[in-house]
Simulated assay, not measured.
Amino acid sequence: MTESPKAAMADPAEIERALARVKAARQAIVSELRKVIVGQDDPIDQVLVAMFAGGHCMIQGPPGTAKTLLATCVAQVMDLSFKRIQFTPDLMPSDISGTEILEEDQTTGRRMLRFAKGPVFSNIVMADEINRTPPKTQAALLEVMQERQVTLGGRTYPLPEPFYVIATQISLEQEGTYPLPEAQQDRFMLTISMNYLPERSEAQVVRRSTGAEAVELQKVIGATDLLAFAQAVRQVTLPPALSRYVVDLVASSRPTVPGCPDFVKEYVAWGAGLRASQNIALAAKSAAAQDGRSTVEPQHIRKAIVPVMRHRIGLSFRAEVDHVSVEDVIRRLTQACPEPPSH
């Protein structure tokens, strides 16, 4: 979970101006991304929700659905440094975070260790096919995602700000995959689903990608803007009734909690934890800020529930037998926990 920025704005007028800048930036970014990304409006919105809140995201989907393209285009439009790591079975932790190299001073002959920074020292790190590599290497991302730093040889090296991990994951049914540990899945604010395009949108992609016209993306914002946006997002108000609803909804996903629905006891092996509640609230605040609103409304919570919870609920064997998906469980949870009336 991203820690709250140290600075805080108290002036309501200043907050309104900051939210207006967030809304305008979001509209400009989406306009630029649509020059290249076709028919994936929901994934674009969800990536921006995570990034404006300072969170990491996982993108899932079949090959050829613009997962990598979305990450690279976001980096261009936001003028951020970008590194892509192709996760493979032989990838080592030092290939991610960096390593110490023994060097000799040519003038004095003295030997010393120099830290060679790995690809995580970038604003956006794309962890491509993250479940292709063994757990030992996956764990190298744990510290950088949570603490935003690398520790090696007793020294700590801070990562550039802002820092985001955008990971892609291939189908677990394929050979040579290693499921992500629960602790690492929990570090991702959202899991975003990118599916095949409708026929008309796919035809549009084919015409664009095989044509001679080159699309040039314009830079809309920079790193300092994103840091300011993350601060503005946290100034959005979450009404007490909605915060209680979020906590109740997440708690009802836990089969060990007394009073949880019967279908949860039947189909859920482990439910969502505290970070789910925190990230639903923060994602809803980010969505509200991008609408230019200073208070979270029920529709903002609704937009956050599925992408926040879909990787935080583990299904039982019975769910697999009955062909029940995580999305089915979440849908039934929202039906069992009615949201409070809007005022």
Rank of each mutant, 00 (worst) to 15 (best):
G176L: 00
Q299W: 12
T168W: 03
I166T: 01
P134V: 07
Y157R: 05
P158G: 08
E16G: 12
R34S: 14
I192R: 09
L33R: 01
D186M: 05
T156R: 15
V205M: 08
R275E: 09
S201P: 03
P240K: 10
K23L: 13
E129Y: 02
R254M: 05
A287P: 08
L238Y: 12
K303C: 14
V268T: 05
E14S: 14
A276Y: 06
A283M: 06
R332L: 09
A66V: 10
I29C: 00
H311T: 02
P261C: 05
G55Y: 06
V296P: 05
T72A: 15
E103P: 06
T133A: 09
R312F: 09
K23N: 07
D322C: 08
A272W: 03
Q299N: 14
P12Q: 06
P298D: 02
A66M: 11
Q278K: 08
P158K: 07
E161A: 08
A251H: 04
M92G: 10
F163A: 01
K35N: 10
P119S: 11
T210L: 15
G222P: 00
V30A: 03
A75M: 01
T177D: 02
G98N: 05
F121Q: 06
E266A: 03
M194T: 15
V120M: 05
A283H: 04
A336R: 06
D41K: 14
A223Q: 01
G118I: 07
H323F: 15
R155I: 13
L142C: 09
Q290E: 12
L180G: 01
V205H: 04
H343N: 03
D248V: 01
Q146A: 14
E199W: 04
A127Q: 00
I130S: 02
E161Y: 09
G292F: 07
A230Q: 04
R114D: 13
S316W: 05
L197V: 03
V120G: 01
A71P: 01
H323D: 15
R187E: 01
P240M: 11
V47K: 07
Q290N: 07
T68W: 00
V246Y: 05
Q204G: 09
S94I: 09
P179D: 09
Y157E: 07
L282C: 10
A116K: 15
E103R: 14
K136C: 02
I280V: 15
A251S: 10
W270Q: 10
D186T: 05
Q185C: 12
V233S: 03
Q278T: 10
G176A: 03
F82M: 03
H323P: 06
K6Q: 13
A212G: 14
K265M: 13
L70P: 00
A287V: 12
V165N: 00
T256C: 13
E320N: 11
M189L: 12
A269I: 08
Q149N: 08
A75K: 04
V268I: 05
A139Y: 01
R110N: 14
T108N: 02
F115H: 07
G154R: 15
T256I: 11
A167K: 02
P158N: 10
Q231T: 12
P93S: 02
A251C: 07
A288F: 10
R244Y: 09
M51Y: 13
T2I: 15
A28I: 03
D328A: 01
M145A: 03
L69G: 10
G61I: 05
Q204T: 15
